[in-house]
Design a binder for these strands. Structure first.
Length: 196
DNA sequence: TATTGGATCGCC
DNA sequence: GCGATCCAATAG
């Protein structure tokens, strides 16, 4: 099977489906100093107006506007004043939904990732949403970037479908009943998954 | 305009 | 367990 970049129709599907299907795909960042990529190990879904864990739960704001746009664009925001999180927008325009990318298994450009992270251990390079953004050099200027273009995208390299584990999402205890939704997905038994 | 707290991380 | 560190969101 040839390597193929995911197209907009892939992202414009139900968010839980996209969150599962992204596991085992490769996130690719074309950086001025070289190409970096890694296999997606862990994702979380944030879905619709009702989900109190989602930034969109209180409607359209300046920060979350990209979530209301068409699928296949990057929603990147700063959290805790120092970390960035990368999401891919899903579903139809005007319906706010996205998948948070939470961990990668580094494959290409490992030395460049090490330089950005100032860490050596392969397992610590991209094991968390903030860490993977730091490794790949993703910050707020990436918000609204088209993932169907050439700077940042996701590829299917024909990996066999992984064994998937499902749990509740991390860090959303404030979300009332929505904190218990089983909307976190990760590749079973993989050491690169973020701590829970 | 002022206050509050977070889809995290790494060290204590 | 806890502090770092900034800014979006909300209230006044």
């Amino acid at each position: 099977m040839p390597t193929v970049k995911l197209v907009r129709d892939f992202y414009a599907q139900p968010t839980l489906h996209v969150a599962r299907q992204l596991l085992g795909k490769s996130l690719v960042r074309v950086h001025p100093q070289g190409v970096m990529s890694g296999v997606i190990l862990e994702t979380e879904a944030y879905i619709g107006f009702e989900d109190q864990a989602s930034h969109a739960s209180r409607g359209l704001t300046r920060r979350n506007a990209v979530m209301f746009g068409p699928a296949g664009f990057a929603y990147v925001y700063l959290i805790y004043g120092m970390h960035h999180c990368l999401n891919v927008v899903t579903e139809r325009e005007a319906y706010p939904a996205a998948v948070l990318i939470r961990a990668l298994q580094p494959s290409e450009g490992v030395e460049l990732m090490r330089a950005q992270r100032r860490k050596q251990d392969l397992r610590l390079l991209a094991n968390g949403p903030g860490n993977l953004c730091q490794a790949l050099g993703i910050e707020r200027s990436f918000n609204g970037l088209d993932l169907c273009a050439d700077a940042l995208f996701i590829e299917d390299r024909g990996c066999s479908p992984p064994d998937i584990m499902v749990t509740t999402r991390v860090g959303v205890d404030y979300a009332g009943p929505w904190k218990d939704m089983p909307w976190r997905f990760y590749i079973a038994g993989h050491p690169g998954v973020s701590k829970h």
